[in-house]
Write a protein that binds this DNA or RNA. Structure first.
Length: 414
RNA sequence: GUGGGUGUAGCUCAGGGGCAGAGCACUAGACUGUGGCUCUAGGAGCCGGGGGUUCGAAUCCCCUCACCCACCCCA
């Protein structure tokens, strides 16, 4: 019989890892709440068209990485490849927008992309993200970066910085795209094959081609900031003021471009020194809400890749104290039922093995379970109305009376 | 989607045409009410799957699948 294996690109997060995830999840959620964000939990399935409209039909994510299918009624659906589209959809759908009102939402969950699996990259992967809807002021962009910075510090990440850039408002962005396209069309011969395709689909991406020759060619195009309208320039200027004032480590990178169509103006990515890939990325998307059928609502947000985050966080996880009950004989086993119940009621993790084992086997179990304490109860103990409490780390043990064992264990554990 | 690497015991891996191996882990005993340390013994595998070459294939060839790494893309 063949054994079942996880399907390509999927991964199990096993005990040993889950503790790290839980820690990171708690820090992220607490940080977001502290900044006024509330959790939203959209479904993982949406209409395929929602993603086409938001991310861009020509993007790689839609054109070759989306998990899409038809259900029994022939509806064209897709597993979400990212979170923003769903959040915006839910935002629009749930209530009529109130002008000037700021809505802060965070989400966490699995995303799906049919990519080739690689280090830190899976077909089902987890993202934590936040979206701030209704905020136009550039300081909101700053606040988004500040929240990421806060999270990084709370997770004890060191040696990180933000790459920041602006793409301009939709007008500036498309104008600049054309400027770059025409500037580089003249140099098409010096571009690599990939970049020639990029020239047609998303010329801005040539700026961060791995090929140095392409980047050199791209350098002849004017920088974004040289072509922006005054409003866009001011917006970016104020954003820079915010991050400077907040003391957030930033590096301006005029080549920074995001792969999703909906970004406008501010874009940023979180990098940890030595890593090539961004841990988190985001930016402003002032047109998306309207494009998805909502009222004109400026917005800014970011998403953070959990797998990548987990791999760079230095975890110092404390073991929670626990007790293993070694009950020998039928009478002790019966007594054990109430003992473990009482321990658990006191918030002390307790486990036992119901097979009738000798003390040796019980201690071995206790050792393997990782319990710091072993409570030994056998016929001898029952006769004297006392138990033996053994410290599994030091090997020391003491007799404790049945009447006061709970109190004594609580003392020792704290 | 492209390129490279690797699939052998539960785990980490050695063996590269002629008996299927080591370390760790596991089980038992030394030690029948004291785990970890030590020693001894033991269990065990369609050598990823399919096809081919050969007297003979874990080993060579072809196909396939999976994992890893890089590109692409992205978090």
């Amino acid at each position: 019989m063949d054994r079942y294996k996880k399907v390509r690109g999927m991964h199990d997060i096993m005990p040993g890892e889950t503790e790290k995830w839980q820690f990171a999840e708690t820090v992220l959620a607490d940080s977001a709440k502290l900044h006024g964000y509330r959790e939203i939990r959209p479904p993982v399935i949406e209409e395929r068209m929602l993603f086409e409209r938001s991310i861009g039909a020509s993007s790689d994510i839609i054109s070759k990485e989306i998990y899409s299918f038809q259900d029994r009624k022939g509806r064209h659906l897709a597993l979400r490849p990212e979170g923003t589209a769903s959040v915006v959809r839910a935002f629009i759908e749930s209530a009529p927008p109130i002008p000037g009102k700021i809505t802060r939402l965070y989400y966490y969950g699995p995303m799906f992309r049919y990519d080739r699996p690689q280090k830190g990259r899976y077909r089902q992967f987890y993202q934590f993200g936040v979206e701030l809807l209704g905020g136009k002021h550039p300081f909101f962009d700053g606040e988004a970066v500040a929240l990421l910075d806060f999270m990084a510090r709370k997770l004890n990440i060191t040696g990180y910085y933000f790459a920041i850039n602006t793409l301009g408002c939709p007008k500036c962005k498309s104008a600049y795209t054309e400027i770059v396209r025409s500037a580089l069309s003249a140099k098409e011969d010096s571009l690599c094959e990939d970049c020639r395709t990029r020239l047609k689909i998303s010329p801005l991406r040539i700026f961060d081609c791995k090929n140095a020759e392409c980047r050199e060619s791209a350098a002849c195009a004017p920088a974004v900031t040289e072509t922006l309208c005054k409003e866009c320039l001011d917006h970016f200027g104020e954003f820079e003021e915010y991050v400077k004032k907040a003391g957030i480590p930033c590096k301006k990178q005029s080549g920074l471009v995001r792969g999703l169509d909906y970004y406008t103006r501010t874009v940023f990515e979180l990098y940890v020194n030595g890593d090539e890939n961004a841990v988190a990325a985001g930016g402003r998307y002032d047109s998306l809400v309207r494009e998805l059928g909502g009222a004109d609502t400026p917005a800014v947000g970011f998403a953070l890749g959990m797998e990548r985050l987990i791999s760079i966080v230095n975890f110092k996880l404390e073991k929670t104290p626990s007790v293993y009950l070694a009950a020998m004989g039928k009478a002790a086993a019966l007594k054990g039922i109430s003992i473990v119940k009482e321990l658990r009621n006191e918030g002390i993790a307790a486990e036992t093995d119901y097979e009738d084992r000798g003390l040796k086997a019980h201690l071995k179990n206790a050792d393997r379970s990782g319990a710091q304490w072993c409570l030994i109860v056998g016929d001898r103990e029952l006769e004297k109305n006392e138990f033996i409490l053994k410290n599994m780390v030091t090997g020391e043990q003491e007799n404790i009376s049945e009447d006061t064992y709970l109190k004594r264990i609580k003392e020792l554990i704290k």
